[in-house]
Design a protein around this nucleic acid. Sequence first.
DNA 1: GTGAAAGCGCTAACAT
DNA 2: ATGTTAGCGCTTTCAC
Lengths: 336, 336
Amino acid sequence: MAKITDVARRAGVSPSTVSYALSGKRPISDATRRRVEEAARDLGYHPHAAARAGAGARASVLALAAPLRSGVHVPVVMRLAVSVVTTARAHAHDVLLLTQEEAEEGLNRAVRTASVDGLLLTDVELHDPRLPTLRSLDRPTVLIGVPANAYGLTCVDLDFRAAGEACVNHLAELGHRTVALVGSPPEVYLRRTAYAHHLMHGFTTAAARHGLASSVHPGGPDPATAPRLAERLLHEHPALTAVVVHNEPLLAPLIAAFEHLGLRVPADLSVTAVCPDDLAATPRLPVTSVSLPADELGARAVDLLIRKLHGTAVPETTLLPPRLTERASTSRRMPA
Amino acid sequence: MAKITDVARRAGVSPSTVSYALSGKRPISDATRRRVEEAARDLGYHPHAAARAGAGARASVLALAAPLRSGVHVPVVMRLAVSVVTTARAHAHDVLLLTQEEAEEGLNRAVRTASVDGLLLTDVELHDPRLPTLRSLDRPTVLIGVPANAYGLTCVDLDFRAAGEACVNHLAELGHRTVALVGSPPEVYLRRTAYAHHLMHGFTTAAARHGLASSVHPGGPDPATAPRLAERLLHEHPALTAVVVHNEPLLAPLIAAFEHLGLRVPADLSVTAVCPDDLAATPRLPVTSVSLPADELGARAVDLLIRKLHGTAVPETTLLPPRLTERASTSRRMPA
DNA sequence: GTGAAAGCGCTAACAT
DNA sequence: ATGTTAGCGCTTTCAC
C-alpha cells in the first residue's frame, strides 16, 4: 500500500507538497501538481483515512442508524438505505450501517470508535430517547422523521400530516362521508413513531374539518390478517365508503379481502394509500396514493448532512409536500 | 471527547497502562485495572479507532459489498445485511455498507480510505470480476456465494445445487414426470450469478438422473408477468405437473395465476419453492419449500470473517445443506 | 511555491 | 507490574 512518502519520493517533492497538491489547499505550480498526480496514479495511492482523521481531518464516513424495529416495512427502509449510500458516495463519503437496539450507546460508540463524521437517524419517535445523546455528541445530525420538539435539530421527511389531509380531502371531495384509516401496526403507535403519528393526526383533523365520520385502525403487519380486518371494518362501520391505507404489506391483501367480501373497488369502496409509488401503480388495480418518496428522502437527508459538515446553515425542518396521484381505486361516492 | 491521556491522568497511571488495562494485552494489577476502568467510565472514554488504526491496530470495521443489481430480491439482501450487522456487533465490529456498482475501485477505496479490516461480498458471480481485486487487496474476505473457482477463497452459501436436487427428488418421488423451473430474472443468469446457476444446475441434473422431462424459465421480477408466464408454461408443456419456483416476488402471483387458469394446487399442479421460510409458510396455501436461511448465512459469513481476522484457519467453502419442508403445495401426481 | 517539523490519539516495543 | 518512547500516515503550522 503506497503511502504519501512513496508518492513524495517518486515525484521528487516533500510529503506536505503531495498533501497540498492532492487536496488543493494551497497553490501548487502546475508542473509539480502534474508530477504528483502522476506519481499517485502510478502507485495507486489513496490517502489513508484513519491517519488523516488522526491529523484532525474527517474520516468521510456517515452513520445511518436504522433500528429496524418491529412493525416497520423493511423494503422502504432498504430503499432509504440504498439512496443514502448512493448519495453519500456521490459526496465521497461511506456509510456505516447501525441497526442495533442499543441505540444511545451505539451512537456514542460509532462516533468515537468508528470516527463517524455525521449521523442520520431513521425511525424517529415523537419523544425519541436518542435525542439527548445526540445533542451531547456534537456531531452534525439529520433526522429522517420529525419529533415533537424539533428545536435545534435538522429534520427531513414527507409531510405526513399533510399527506393524511390530502387523502381525506380527496375522499371528501368525492363525496365520501365515512372514512377509516388503516395504519401501521400497534407497536409503531405505541412507540409514538413520528411518521405514523403525524399521518394519523392529519387524517383525523381533516376528517373533522370536513365533518366526516372517521376511525383509526392499526393494522397487523401480517397480510394474513387482512380478511379479518376487512370484515371488522365493514361490521363496525356499516356506512364506510372509503379507506386510507398507511401500511404497505396490508394494501394489496386488504383490497383483495374487500373484494372477496363482495365489495367492488372503487364502486362500493374507495381506497387511498400512502406508500411508494411502485407499490401503488400495480397493474391489477392501480391505487390512488400519496407517494412515499424513500429515494428522495434519503438523498435529501444526505445532502443536508453534507452541508452541515461543511458548516453551511441548513433549514431546521424540511417537509416534502405530499403528491397525490389519482388512480383507479377511488371514485365519487355512489348515493345508496 | 476524553482521550487516553485524560483517563491516565485521572487514574494516576501512564497512557500505556490505560491501553493495556483496557485491552487486557498484558497483566495489570487488579487495583490499577479497577481505577482505570472507573476513570474511563467516568469520562465516557471510548478509544478512538482512527488513532488506533494509525498505531497498527484494527479499526473494527467490516465492509459489506452488496451490489443490489437488477433482478435480486431486495428483502433477502436486507435480511442478510441485518444479520451481518447484528452478528458483527456481537463481535464488536461495525459494518460499512457498499452498494455501488463501481465494484472493483469501490473495494479498493473502502479498504484504504475507510480502513476496513475485512470484506463480505454478496451477489457473487461464477466469474466474479471482483476476485482479482480481492486477491490483491490482502484483506480477509468472505464471499456469500460460490464462484466457479473458489480456490484460496472463503465462501459460504446455501448449497443451491443440492437445493435444486432436493426439490426435484421430492417431486420425482411423488411421481411427477414433467417439471419446470421458474428461475431468477434473465439478467441474473446473464451475469452468471452463482446461486442462480448452481440451483439451475442441481435442478437440471437431478431431473436427468430421474429421467424427468424438464425445462427452465427465467421469470421476470414483476408479479404482473405471472399470468403470461403461467399460460406459456402450460401451453409449451402440456404434460407439466410440477413447478419449482426460485423467484420470490413471483411465487404467490404465479400460484394465483395457475389457479386462475383453472388448475388446483396441488391436485393438478405441485409447486415447490426455494425462498425464505416465512414467504413459503403463508396461511392461504403453505408452499413446500427449501428454506433460504438469509439470517444464518449472514451470521456464518461474519463468524468466518472474524475468525480469519484472528488468524484462525477456516474451511474454504461452507455449504449449508438444504432443508426441504413439505407443506400443502405438493402432492402425489394424479394419474391422468 | 515548497520544505521541515510538530503533533493527532493510540499501541507496542523497550525499558525498569 | 508499570512507565518511557518511538512511531503509524497524514495534515498543518511555521519558516524560507
